[in-house]
């Protein structure tokens, strides 16, 4: 049996095992990050909408629309928020951040809706719109559009970073495995070479041969085998020239 064939199979097994680990970890990671981040962005948007709704009560009751506009303009600086509009209890638009105008999709939408909804606005992109009632809805509703493209980009970036890290670990793991396998393969190859050399020698040659001290002095299984081969060679001659592999073939196994 050739030693390198044995370790080729082992290397293939290691690659396959690590590949499977990376693939499954990446898929799990993608799913987790996507789900968690999407939920987090939605929750943050909802919180911001609620903050605006809570802050708007007095302003709305005082009909101070300039201050209301100033308030929502400040929240527009939060990354990912692309539009905000506030409707009153009748559904009339009291303040908004749209330029050059309120999109038809929004105008035709339900101004009292408080459930999240995904919207595609021509010329603007795709959005997750969350809403929060002002004073339980009797004073109006705050609507806030979170840029889904930006959220997707953020999620992709987070997933990319995770997969990148896992891939690096895969490469390091495989390299470490090869190194460890080689640690075992090299003395085995030497042992094989030693066994072949010993078998090829005549009894006279064996009597004058310099023993391979490196192998014989090892205190592991390879050393034990080497000593066993030496012992056997001193008691049994080789059965025939064709029965043993040549030296070159034995070295290549290392």
């Amino acid at each position: 049996m050739k030693v390198h064939k044995l370790f080729q199979r082992m290397r293939f097994g290691i690659f396959a095992l690590f590949g499977l680990i990376v693939l499954s970890t990446s898929l799990l990671c993608i799913r987790t990050v996507d789900t968690e981040l999407s939920a987090e962005y939605a929750a943050n948007s909802q919180s911001i909408a609620k903050t605006i709704a809570d802050a708007s009560v007095d302003i709305l009751l005082n009909r101070n629309l300039a201050t209301l506009q100033s308030l929502i303009d400040q929240f527009l600086e939060v990354q990912g928020i692309r539009y905000i509009y506030i409707t009153d209890e009748t559904g009339e638009f009291l303040a908004h951040t749209f330029v050059p105008g309120i999109p038809e999709v929004i105008l035709e939408g339900d101004p009292f809706r408080t459930e999240p909804v995904e919207r595609s606005l021509p010329g603007m992109g795709d959005f997750l719109e969350v809403s929060s009632p002002i004073l339980a809805g009797v004073a109006g509703t705050v609507h806030l559009g979170m840029d889904l493209d930006l959220v997707a980009l953020k999620i992709q970036r987070a997933i990319g970073q995770q997969v990148y890290l896992i891939s690096i670990l895969l490469v390091l793991g495989v390299l470490a495995s090869i190194w460890l396998v080689n640690l075992v393969a090299r003395p085995l190859a030497e042992l094989l070479s030693y066994a072949v050399e010993t078998a090829r020698r005549s009894p006279e040659e064996r009597a004058h041969a310099v023993p391979n001290e490196t192998l014989l002095e090892r205190d592991d299984e390879v050393g034990q085998l080497a000593r066993l081969i030496l012992y056997m060679s001193e008691t049994r001659p080789p059965s025939g020239p064709g029965a043993l592999p040549d030296q070159g073939e034995a070295r290549s196994a290392a």
Partner: peptide
Amino acid sequence: ADAYGRSGWAGVRAALENHGETIAGEATY
């Protein structure tokens, strides 16, 4: 599209409301 614009918009809206009218159309910059 800011507090100044909204202030003027609110003024027009209130004045029209006093006469039973509404803003016919609006655009922002």
